[in-house]
């Protein structure tokens, strides 16, 4: 890889290997390579080293806790406390980790068949972890609704309230109340609302809160609805009112 006779070609061979060579230089190099074993060996050596590095030198991915902390800092952008958190890096990492731990602890402590509101909060927190929020990412209710076909034994209603400031973001399958349920994901500013929908009408309409998240239950036309968000209760109730008062 270090033949003195070919020194002037070395950086050209390297540039060619790195895809940085201009057309004219590449043509000249090709002619030289035809007649030079040493430079061909150099070219192969560079290729071998690149393969080794790609195979054996790890490209370290950012830890999930770091990503979660940074994403959480970026999400509630409109509020000044979110900006202050940028100034407390270590505390923020702790917050992200604490969130992940809280989610796993909440999930671990939940009894089977426990309160669906509490289970929904745990599911909502878990879904906020990176990459978990949506299975089908679409703001179009006519894309989201058919996506549930064949994945559930019922057809959940799907609506978009973008005009009222609650755009549909997508949907996913979730597990609640001992069964697979539809979860619709809405956004309100930097906040995420999960709306769980499954057949049944046992629960009277009510609001509750777990771990700082608001939960609103209601039922309509044989379906149970459960909305979860860190949005304030008044705005979440506004979202619920849209659902209850808008005819399908």
């Amino acid at each position: 890889m270090n033949n003195p006779q070919c020194q002037r070609w070395q950086l050209l061979v390297q540039a060619d290997h790195d895809g940085e060579l201009g057309v004219a230089d590449a043509a000249a190099l090709a002619v030289h390579l035809d007649g030079c074993t040493a430079c061909r060996a150099l070219r192969d050596g560079l290729a071998g080293l690149s393969r080794r590095l790609h195979a054996d030198a790890p490209r370290h991915a950012a830890p999930a806790s770091l990503r979660a902390a940074l994403e959480r800092q970026a999400m509630p952008l409109a509020s000044p406390p979110a900006i202050r958190r940028w100034r407390l890096p270590r505390a923020a990492i702790g917050g992200g980790a604490a969130l992940a731990i809280a989610a796993s602890v909440t999930l671990a402590l939940l009894p089977r068949g426990g309160d669906p509101g509490e289970a929904a909060v745990a599911s909502h927190i878990r879904a906020l972890q990176p990459g978990h929020l949506t299975d089908v990412l679409s703001t179009d209710q006519h894309t989201v609704k058919p996506w549930f076909n064949g994945r559930l034994d019922y057809a959940p209603p799907v609506r978009d309230f973008a005009a009222a400031g609650f755009p549909l973001h997508g949907g996913r399958l979730d597990y609640l109340d001992g069964r697979a349920v539809a979860a619709l994901v809405y956004q309100r500013g930097g906040h995420v609302i999960d709306l769980y929908i499954w057949p049944g009408n046992a629960d009277p309409a009510r609001a509750e809160a777990f771990a700082g998240y608001n939960v609103v239950h209601w039922h309509d036309a044989g379906m149970r609805f459960l909305a979860v968000s860190d949005l304030n209760l008044a705005e979440l109730q506004g979202f619920v009112a849209l659902w209850r008062d808008t005819p399908p």
């Binding site: 970026a74 952008l77 900006i83």
Partner: peptide, 8 residues
């Protein structure tokens, strides 16, 4: 805040 959004 707008910068924070753009930066993210």
């Amino acid at each position: 805040p707008d910068n924070a959004a753009a930066f993210a």
